[in-house]
Simulated assay, not measured.
Amino acid sequence: MQKITPSQHNLDRLLDAKIGTSFDTSVNPDVLAQLLADKRSLNTRRAYERDVVQFFKFMTGKEVTPDLVLEFLHLERTQAVSVVLKYKASLIQKGLKEATVNRRLAAIKSLVSMGRKIGVCVYGLEDVSGEKVQKYRDTTGIDVDAFKRVLAVCDRSTVQGSRDYALLRLLWGNALRRNEISQLNIGDFDPDAKTLRILGKGQGTQREVIDLAEGTVEAITQWVSARGDALDDTPLFTSLDYAKPGHRLTGDGIRKIVVKLCSKAGIKKTMSPHRIRHSAITAALDATDGNVRKVQKLSRHRQLDTLMIYDDNRGKDQAEVSNLLDEMIF
């Protein structure tokens, strides 16, 4: 009789082990909750939840529940596609913009996709196409002189003026997005190294370090000094109103500050933090003679084609050719 070695015995024991006994393989019937839990960004979770709720409210007249979601996910493919196409048609009829229609459809498609992943749905919504959207049709902003007027509105002798000035310097000098600024903490700012750790768009929890110009470092340092002592894990930019003093300044709060300052400076164009970002990127392309690869380091666009749109819009090539044609017929 062949003697069984200890290693053979362990191998047999492992092969005989019951599969799945150490894992929770139960399916969460709340597919919407599962979908939202799969998203890192709080803003993304809020947007998906809002769009899904609107879909079910419009199509059924009912508040969304786990059972109602499952009822939708258990439809036949043709039925489900028909329902979503009707919803899309209603959005178009309301006159919603293409990007808004696509965003709402994306939420429904993601819900179906999650249902398929966890085995409670057998169909997909590939037959429901989105609307064609031309990205960055308008990348215009304001020129350097106009932005200087906005900066001049800030009274840097006050705490609020110091904060607003530092915000504007970041929006212009580093072309930051409002949510990137909103999520900054004191500890992310290193005045000695002249750097800032930001949570970039689509980066999850992975922060990246960007360099700051001398003027921006000085502006942020003055603001931090003016607001008083703060711990590293406290917000870099805070609210100064009576309702929520010391609270983290939200993206919408930053937008309201920009709108107010630009209006006070006499800027007639509708402004926003992203419009200042557009302005900074366009100015950077002008300053570098259209060096899109260098400016990409500033804008942090993943695709170079996006910056090419900025460069094309900056060049006014279509207007130039139209003027040439116009001159031919005089």
Rank of each mutant, 00 (worst) to 15 (best):
K88W: 13
K97N: 12
A106W: 00
R77W: 06
K88H: 13
K88V: 05
K86I: 09
P66S: 05
V52D: 09
T60L: 02
L85Q: 15
S90H: 13
A47G: 08
L73R: 05
F56P: 10
Q93W: 07
T78K: 15
L73G: 07
G61D: 07
Q79P: 00
V81L: 01
R77G: 08
E98Q: 11
L96F: 10
D51A: 01
T100D: 11
R77I: 10
V83M: 11
L68F: 01
H74D: 14
Q54I: 05
M59N: 04
P66C: 03
S82N: 06
L68I: 00
A80Y: 02
L91T: 09
P66L: 03
Y48N: 07
V83T: 13
L96V: 14
R104W: 09
F55P: 02
A47I: 07
V83S: 10
V101H: 04
K94W: 01
Q79M: 02
E63C: 00
V83G: 07
M59Q: 08
V52N: 04
R50M: 10
V52F: 01
V81A: 05
K94E: 14
S82V: 00
Q79Y: 01
T100Y: 04
T78C: 12
F58V: 12
F58E: 15
E49C: 08
V81S: 00
G61K: 07
G61Y: 08
V53E: 11
Y48W: 04
Q54E: 14
L91M: 14
